[in-house]
Nucleic acid binder design. Structure first.
Length: 434
RNA sequence: GGCGCUAUCGUCUAACGGUUAGGACGGAGCCCUCUCAAGGCUCAAAUAGGAGUUCGAUUCUCCUUAGCGCUACCA
């Protein structure tokens, strides 16, 4: 039984890359009838905010993909600490009493790799216990075996076989001096406890995986399968960030621009994954069936937005395709919702409304087009373009339109074809008269 | 600096060593058309560079270059 998790940390709104990670997890789980776990990784108390937690729910809610189990790491801290002290007890970890570096500049990057503080690593158990007993703050670090060094290896579902020498892995922190677990510890402790079988996450964690394997092994747990996803990046090749790239990175930007959740999901799937048979527009069912790690690319994918337009043109096209092919009874309520949001209301009964939507949707590409380009269909307060106004003011034009309206109203049916037929008939009659 | 990952049209991608290197978005043009769209057709557009293996490399190996990631008591 497959169990996968999506583990966002609430330090910002739901990021487009996170959304894709969630979608790929979801697709994989649903395809194999597994269990989808949503776990909020909120161990960084300084950076967590309620607002971002809300934004994550909001984004996931819009996508409409459900999860089966829910956890919050902040409610499971005892598990994490337990594992840290177990490792300490086993001698696989040790206390480091070095005061926290004031800022990153203090870190010895440039020259060579930083592996550990040998003094602290060599501290005797007695000495270590004594200092801890005395209340001296400490961080617990993993004691990576480097003499002799050995290869840590695993098979990644996307990137294939991976190996790294322990000589290149530093003694990473497990438990902070304030008693909070680090990401590595909390993530592994929970993956073990929640019996996660597949860890599907961003490629930025590919090299962290070696550390995680060390933790899993130290805990005596069986390894989950790992699959890392290529990152989503900006057109200039940098990683997507709110500061530099603004609203593009937020899922809600697409929602607010009138996107269909399915089209957005479809678009995101095509970034870094391919069904390999040239299909582009796909339903959720088709995506689920077609998804596999073999189809996932290994290089990063660019989200193609510009300074003036946060929307990727291909996403827009995909949305228009879904907009005009989806069942009208599914689309109509979404249009109605969008109209109401923009201060308009659908006229007529449900069937009439569906006809209107069905008639005009072929020329629109996002939901918001109905209340902007299609405004005249839903209210009397609209602006006629100057060119159109000239034609409208041509002698006899208004009278003709009135005649046309009467004919259209006389029909019980109202479709694109019927309107066109009426218009052509009227035009012919006029031509004959002239 | 160390370690790791990656490299096909502007962008997303296809091509289990043999293809005129395919598709899509976007762009250009033509057709359709009372307008604007939609739709149909056509065109331009790519294997980062260099060695090697091979009868033959986009594909396998190595080097270079470039980009990205990790190297935090962030995740």
């Amino acid at each position: 039984m497959i169990r996968a998790r999506f583990a966002p940390s609430p330090t910002g709104y739901l990021h487009i890359g996170s959304a894709r990670t969630f979608i790929f997890n979801w697709l994989y789980v649903r395809k194999h009838q597994g269990t989808m776990v949503l776990r909020i990784d909120d161990t960084d108390v300084d950076r967590n905010t309620e607002a971002s937690l809300k934004s994550i729910y909001e984004g996931l809610d819009w996508l409409g993909l459900k999860w089966d189990e829910f956890y919050r790491q902040s409610e499971r801290l005892h598990h994490h600490r337990q594992l840290a002290f177990d490792l300490l007890e086993k001698g696989l970890a040790y206390r480091d009493f070095t005061p926290a570096a004031a800022d990153l500049e203090d870190k010895p990057h440039g020259e060579g790799p930083w592996l550990c503080n040998p003094e602290m690593r060599a501290l005797s158990k007695e000495e270590s216990d004594k200092r801890a007993q005395a209340g001296e703050p400490f961080v617990i670090r993993y004691r990576v075996q480097r003499e002799p060094a050995y290869e840590v290896s695993f098979h990644d579902g996307v990137y294939g076989p991976q190996t790294k020498l322990t000589a290149d892995i530093e003694d990473f922190a497990l438990l902070r001096s304030n008693g909070m677990p680090t990401y590595h510890l909390a993530s592994c402790a929970d993956d073990i406890d929640l019996k996660i079988t597949h860890v599907i996450r961003g490629q930025d964690h590919l090299s962290n995986t070696f550390k995680h394997i060390l933790i899993f092994q130290g805990a005596g747990a069986t390894l989950p399968r790992f699959a890392h996803l290529p990152l989503l990046i900006a057109p200039d090749g940098s990683k997507l960030s709110k500061r530099r790239h603004g609203p593009v990175v937020s899922v809600t930007t697409y929602r607010d621009n009138g996107f269909l959740a399915l089209a957005y999901i479809n678009f995101l799937c095509l970034l870094g994954w391919s069904p390999k048979d040239n299909r582009e527009q796909m339903s959720l069912y088709e995506l689920t069936n077609a998804f596999s790690f073999e189809g996932v690319h290994r290089s990063n994918a660019v989200v193609n937005f510009s300074e003036t337009d946060p929307i990727d043109p291909k996403a827009l096209w995909l949305n228009s395709q879904h907009l005009r092919t989806m069942p009208i009874n599914v689309l109509a309520p979404l249009v109605k919702e969008s109209l109401i949001e923009h201060g308009l209301s659908p006229l007529g009964d449900e069937s009439f409304f569906e006809h209107v939507v069905d008639t005009i949707r072929t020329r629109f590409s996002v939901l918001t087009d109905f209340s902007t380009k299609g405004r005249a269909y839903f209210c009397d307060d609209y602006v006629i373009e100057p060119q159109a106004l000239d034609k409208l003011n041509a002698p006899g034009a208004r009278e003709l339109l009135r005649q046309l309206a009467d004919r259209i109203a006389a029909h019980p049916e109202f479709t694109e074809a019927s309107v066109e037929a009426d218009l052509r008939k009227l035009a012919e009659e006029r031509a004959v008269k002239a």
